[in-house]
């Protein structure tokens, strides 16, 4: 097992009397492919929000590459390489797909404070942006306004933007949400193409997608980690089965 990139110890969060995250310990190794599953209300999105700093934790430690980050603002965590995508699209709908990515590239390359002299820098950002669109398989959509793109391509664009930030760890919050089942394979193919050195945690309701993608699955129930194991053993775990009300998870 290689060294852990993201380490979480004893993470807790309460909303009033409701404990939405209870003593979560989590290790994400370099290049990991982790699936995070759990029934509705298990606190999956809350956990992502705590990791990325959208919410502040009540207790616990989060370390990225050995440095504590639990008190950093969301944007500082992003700059250190902890990047997420959102369950609901948060794209700049009035701009082209390519500009959406280029703005992120400009931010990463620290060009975003340039006001008057920026021609070559911005062109470099746009060119680099196109490479991420190609990588994720939507190169053809680069010049189109995001509001005119099909929903599936908008979801892929979210991933392309996250990728353009050169993350160490990517948290993908339901990338397949709202996509018709006929297009689900596009998401899967895009995920397969993500660089192998990037650690990825996938939060997803589509069990098919999770079990095909993840090498390791974390089951979250009532804000606590129930178990963590390889997909083959998770699918036969009686506790996991009972959590999902006896339904088969694969």
């Amino acid at each position: 097992m290689s060294a852990s990139v993201l380490t979480v110890r004893g993470l807790c969060k309460n909303f009033g009397a409701l404990a939405v995250t209870q003593n979560v310990d989590l290790d994400i190794a370099a290049g990991a492919r982790i699936g995070l599953i759990g029934p509705n209300g298990a606190g999956k999105t809350t956990l992502v929000n705590l990791l990325t700093g959208m919410l502040t934790s009540d207790r616990g430690e989060i370390a990225l590459d050995g440095a504590r980050i639990e008190r950093l603002s969301p944007e500082h965590r992003v700059r250190r390489g902890l990047v997420r995508t959102h369950q609901i699209n948060t794209l700049l709908m009035e701009l082209t797909a390519r500009d959406n990515v280029a703005i992120a590239v400009a931010e990463r390359r620290k060009f975003a404070w340039r006001l008057l002299r920026y021609g070559p820098q911005w062109r470099a950002c746009v060119e680099e942006a196109q490479t991420y669109l190609e990588e994720i398989g939507i190169a053809h959509a680069g010049g189109r306004r995001v509001s005119l793109l099909p929903y599936g391509e908008q979801r892929l664009l979210e991933i392309a933007i996250a990728l353009s930030l050169k993350p160490r760890v990517m948290l993908l919050d339901e990338p397949g949400a709202g996509i018709p089942s006929t297009e689900a394979h596009l998401i899967h193919e895009a995920l397969e193409r993500l660089p192998s050195e990037v650690s990825i945690m996938l939060i997803e309701h589509d069990m098919d997608l999770v079990f095909r993608f993840a090498k390791d699955i974390v089951v979250l129930v009532l804000g606590a980690v129930l178990t963590r194991d390889v997909p083959a053993r998770i699918s036969v775990d009686p506790r996991v089965r009972s959590v999902y009300l006896g339904r088969s998870v694969v």
Partner: peptide, 15 residues
């Protein structure tokens, strides 16, 4: 322009 359209997006890219 991005902040005007969606400040959440901009936070997510580290702005």
């Amino acid at each position: 322009d991005g902040i005007r359209q969606n400040s959440r997006r901009m936070r997510a890219i580290g702005t």
